[in-house]
Amino acid sequence: MTTALRRYPVLIALCIAALFMVVPFLIVAVNAVKSPAEYSEHGPLSLPQGLYLDGLKDFWQRVDYGQKLFNSVLISGSVAVLAAILSVLNAYAIGIGRIKGRTWVLAFFVLANMLPQEALVYPLYYLSKQVGLYDTRLSVIIVFTVIQAAFGTYLLSSVLGQFPREIIEAARIDGANKWQVLWRIVVPVSRPTIGVLLVFFFIWTWNEFLLPLVMLISNDNQTVSVALGVLQGQRLMDATMTNAAALLGVLPAIVFFLVFQRTLTRGIAVGAVK
């Protein structure tokens, strides 16, 4: 009885705190569907009187949002796949091959992962101009493949270090070479971890800001993050447009969030069974 009385205040306090976390999303959603007239009359806190979608449509057309989404999906998707492949190759040599000096190699990857992008951004900008890759999506894909693979190598190496060696030795005795062992045995068995890495890499690359901001200057190549950040920086948007921008920026994130929750719980569950 006393505990029941004591429990509810904690629940209520946590619900209020959680509400505070999601309130910005709600305000954005509410204001994105208000007409400018309604907004200037009633301010940001009133509920919308109807569904006004012209603001969203205007914004979509003005910034060519479809193109930005395509760029973001192309860049993040390529980076996720390529970085996962690079991580698997590195981790195979370090975790299963146990090459000489692997501790140092691993330490190098950890430090590379910690390195601030500010220490790379100007040379990368300069070099990409020299080789003619400046302002191309390919340049961003190459750079982030390597940056994300630093984390992937670190994580996968420790996972593959625990890999049951009997399985590998059995396959070797059956005549499988190292490539076959990697693709037929190591990769399938590590699929849950690789899946989690793919999701992480995709979301992280989607959210990256500094390097894409520097490398992608033309409108046709910009990602969602860069396009929205630049628009915000110019301070040219009115309230309706700002909210349309925010809502269209939030929606993909919510989709990722749902995917992320599923993959993460599944990855952890499979890992526990193993």
């Binding site: 910005p24 909210n243 939030v250 994130a253 969030f257």
Partner: peptide
């Protein structure tokens, strides 16, 4: 999971 650019837009308007 929100891109920081989007969080920035949301908050600078709020």
């Amino acid at each position: 999971v929100l891109p920081i650019a989007v969080a920035g837009i949301v908050w600078s308007w709020i």
